[in-house]
């Protein structure tokens, strides 16, 4: 099966620091991948490059063989770490915006998820709480039949009950052809859903492995391993 994401010597430098240095990475289809690392390790930088919000300093990153651009944005569904939906819009208006631009957007699915969480689509975003807005943003992202989902800290700002719902949403809504890349530092919450993990530290990948392999060869949980590797 061909790779969905490939990085070759990917490097991103800012004026004063190197955010990513010489990353080589291949992600296959149909995997749930945890991108794990402490704050400032380069997780968001990598995800921003995947989504065309940053341009690499050197090296390449391709999605299904294509450089990030309008074509790849049509097949990558991105949940930024920030709340990025226009506050003045109603939930229903944002849904039609997604429907307008993304061919793979499934409106019925979005309304179904809204219904399950008892969220009112006629409300304007600015009237909703922070947690509710995050749920809506996640619903929009997961209502696309994308080939690659990039979720940047999807469970950071919501309560544990919602966290379970969100993870459940992620697992049940992605198809077997698609890959989900989840960046987080809340490892214990998500480690049970992951197929593979990437440890990233100071802009370099220190580990990229199958979760089952880690458990069988190292005999410890990802959370424990993470705490050892990134011990301060």
């Amino acid at each position: 099966m061909s790779a969905i994401l490939e990085c070759r010597s990917l490097t991103k430098k800012y004026a004063s620091l190197t955010a990513l240095s010489d990353i080589n990475l291949t992600l296959e289809r149909g995997r749930i991948v945890g991108l794990l690392g402490p704050n400032g390790s380069g997780k968001t930088t990598l995800i921003k490059i995947i989504n065309g919000l940053l341009v690499p300093t050197s090296g390449t990153l391709t999605i299904r063989g294509m450089n990030p651009g309008p074509e790849t944005k049509g097949i990558v569904s991105y949940l930024p770490e920030k709340m990025c939906l226009p506050e003045w819009m109603k939930v229903s208006e944002i849904i039609s915006l997604y429907e307008d631009f993304y061919e793979d957007f499934d409106k019925d699915k979005a309304y179904e998820m809204l219904g399950k969480l008892q969220l009112d689509a006629t409300k304007r975003l600015k009237t909703l709480s922070k947690g509710t807005k995050e749920k809506i943003q996640l619903i929009l992202v997961m209502s696309r039949k994308a080939q690659l989902y990039c979720l940047d800290e999807p469970i950071g700002g919501v309560d544990p009950a919602a966290r379970d719902y969100i993870l459940n949403t992620i697992i049940t809504n992605y198809n077997e052809d698609a890959t989900v890349l989840i960046s987080t530092h809340l490892i214990s919450d998500i480690e049970n859903v992951l197929d593979e993990v990437i440890f990233i530290k100071e802009g370099s990948i220190t580990l990229h492995s199958d979760v089952d392999d880690i458990r069988s060869t190292q005999g410890k949980s990802i959370d424990t391993l993470f705490r050892e590797v990134f011990k301060c």
Partner: peptide, 11 residues
């Protein structure tokens, strides 16, 4: 923040 939405539209 809205730029995250606009610049990741497939346009």
């Amino acid at each position: 923040e809205e730029g995250y939405l606009m610049f990741t539209l497939p346009v």
